[in-house]
């Protein structure tokens, strides 16, 4: 009986070491919660900017018929909001992940975390460049769905090297992105669902599952 106990422990230990050495598991759920919250605040501010200008009806913020390119003031305000959300989300992500790694006595810069970052960034940067090109062509209406789809692909790709649950957020985002192409013009709404609520729900679940003591 003693032997069985020892062998079972060894098997579990082997499994744990294999997982830990190939996956970066210090990613914090709180990072998701904060990124989602910043996304919601950003969406609200963007809505205010567009609403104040009063040149749209309903939800067609990103309708191709609205020539945003003619209004540089709005452009600059929207881009400022976007950069603000990006910087705050990355900052929170780094901070909470750093805290979690420190608490678990783990290094932040490991083979697994490098692989995770690379697999995340490859589709993400491709999508980002594609969006800049679309904006340059005046195809604003496609920006929201493309960001959702490419972010989804990034999550699925990165899930090989971190908590596999991140893949689920990826599939949901791709689904939202595709739906957004069906309901063109409702980009802000789909962003709120994908980058806002999905992140908050996912981050909370991950926090409860892996971090809460």
């Amino acid at each position: 009986m003693m032997d069985a106990q020892k062998h079972l422990e060894n098997l579990n230990e082997i499994k744990r070491i294999m997982e830990r050495s190939t996956r970066f598991l210090s990613l914090s759920g709180l990072a998701g919660v904060f990124a989602g919250t910043f996304a919601l605040i950003g969406a609200y501010l963007a809505y205010q900017v567009l609403d104040k200008d009063n040149f749209i009806n309903g939800m067609e913020y990103f309708d191709s018929k609205i020539l945003l390119s003619g209004n540089h003031a709005i452009h600059i305000q929207l881009i400022s909001i976007a950069i603000g959300v990006l910087v705050l989300s990355l900052g929170a992500g780094f901070y909470f992940t750093h805290q979690k790694a420190k608490k678990e006595n783990r290094q932040l810069w490991t083979v697994a975390s490098k692989k995770m970052l690379l697999s995340l960034l490859a589709p993400l940067i491709s999508g980002g460049i594609l969006c800049l090109l679309l904006i340059n062509q005046g195809l604003f209406v496609l920006v929201a769905p493309i960001t959702l789809i490419f972010y989804g692909l990034s999550c699925i790709n990165a899930s090989t090297y971190t908590h596999s649950e991140i893949g689920a957020i990826g599939y949901f985002n791709i689904l939202l992105g595709l739906l957004n192409v069906f309901f063109l013009g409702y980009g802000l709404l789909f962003w709120v669902l994908g980058f806002g609520f999905l992140h908050i729900i996912y981050g909370t679940l991950m926090y409860l599952k892996y971090e809460k003591e």
Binding site: N10, E13, I14, I17, M18, T22, V111
Partner: peptide
């Protein structure tokens, strides 16, 4: 346990 651990890491990672 240490040898078991070393082998576990090397089974799933090349050149560590």
């Amino acid at each position: 346990r240490i040898r078991l651990g070393v082998m576990s890491v090397l089974m799933v990672n090349d050149w560590v």
